[in-house]
Design a protein around this nucleic acid. Structure first.
Lengths: 224, 224
DNA sequence: TAGATTGTTAATCGATTAACAATC
DNA sequence: TAGATTGTTAATCGATTAACAATC
């Protein structure tokens, strides 16, 4: 850590950061990258907020949790802020990810281009189905039996796992990921997974996303 | 509407419902259905909260936005509460959905079993790529050129659309969905989409979900 | 300099939790 | 009845917004 740090950095006993702030951070990053592709070099909190539907105050407050990134009178320099947010989110490095479950959804995740661009690489896939395993590899990526998880995870220093198996199998898979030291799990199975403290979990349930949509369509204007 | 309504129902000038409440509603529903499959007929707010990591007070408060569903001393009857929540979310009916973009991700969405079980049916898929269109159908579902959206959408009374196209194409697709009267959009493209008031939007960005995970892994314990 | 915009404080707003009378 | 649990009110907690001195 050579360059001076603007703030004690969120690693300390630093006041905890609201989850909502972190999810907006990802949106800021995405928007900044889009702006940069369009040749923008600088952006104000007002403009960034407008593009995403937030107030300028919120943008500044969110960023101020992590340091002083802006220039009064100018705004934020896109390249600097992109670098800063990536560091905050931990995606200034590439993360090797394990995928468990190579059905429909798993295959789509394997082929998804968006991961590489944002610092993630699926380095190994696992399944238990003989039919799937028979192929040996998909898109050039080896597909192992789940029983090989321990060795493969260790060899590739895997810290993140994605679960794309049927609901009833998800908890068992999560337990096996934990057992090999995975620190974060992205779960696509439509069930609640129980994890011990100290392991992070993000759940994505595609049907639930659609339900959120139908609610607001049916109750047009009833949400905050 | 024959049976007596417990409350003025969220359609009125009824105080607006926080988004967070609606997303928990979906989790309650999922958990209740899981419980029911395991033979449970009744559940208390305390137990339901414990399973999902919420307080009992929160569960009761959330449900109380919509009516009186519980029985003091007993709890909630699973079947009744499932029916009630489905009605609230609008998934007591089946929604025909249009899918635009039949690449990797689109194909996975087409094959996803979880939708049908929760009230959604993809009734038509669209693309603009000649190679994709050449097949004519996928999984028995017709794939049309996007230019055919107006007629197909009308014929099938489509009110919801899912966007699974590359980022640069997403806004254009959204505009075309709007033009045919779609009222809600689930966007998987990693870009911000602008919609007019009165159309609902839910965005799912897979890389962002992973970023949320890396943040909490890197800043272990720094989130609320 | 004048104009723009930051970082931050204080005020507002909204959501969560605790507590309890009512009820089965 | 006693025990359990609801629905709801009031208290607490946290997050958002408005305002402004500091700064480029």
């Amino acid at each position: 850590m050579s360059d001076f740090e603007p703030k004690p950095a969120a690693s300390d006993a630093d006041a905890s950061i609201p989850k909502a702030v972190v999810s907006r951070l990802s949106l800021y990053l995405r928007q900044l990258q889009q702006g940069q592709r369009d040749g923008q070099t600088t952006i104000s909190s007002k403009e960034l907020g407008r593009l995403l539907g937030f107030t300028d105050a919120q943008v500044r407050k969110d960023l101020a949790y992590f340091g002083h990134f802006g220039y009064p009178g100018i705004g934020y320099r896109c390249d600097e802020l992109i670098t800063a947010i990536k560091r905050i989110l931990g995606t200034d490095q590439t993360w090797p990810v394990a995928l468990v479950g190579v059905g429909n959804l798993g295959r789509a995740l394997l082929g998804y281009k968006g991961f590489a661009q944002r610092g993630f690489t699926i380095v190994a896939a696992f399944d238990t189905d003989a039919h799937v395993l028979a192929g040996g590899s998909i898109d050039g990526l080896p597909v192992y039996h789940l029983d090989n998880l321990p060795e493969v995870a260790r060899q590739n220093r895997i810290r993140l796992g994605m679960i794309a198996v049927p609901g009833p199998a998800a908890q068992g898979v999560a337990d096996r990921l934990l057992a090999v030291g995975v620190e974060g799990i992205l779960n696509f199975a439509p069930v609640t997974i129980k994890l011990p403290e100290g392991v992070s979990l993000v759940g994505v349930d595609l049907a639930i996303e659609l339900e959120q949509l139908t609610f607001s369509v049916v109750n047009r204007g009833a949400t905050t």
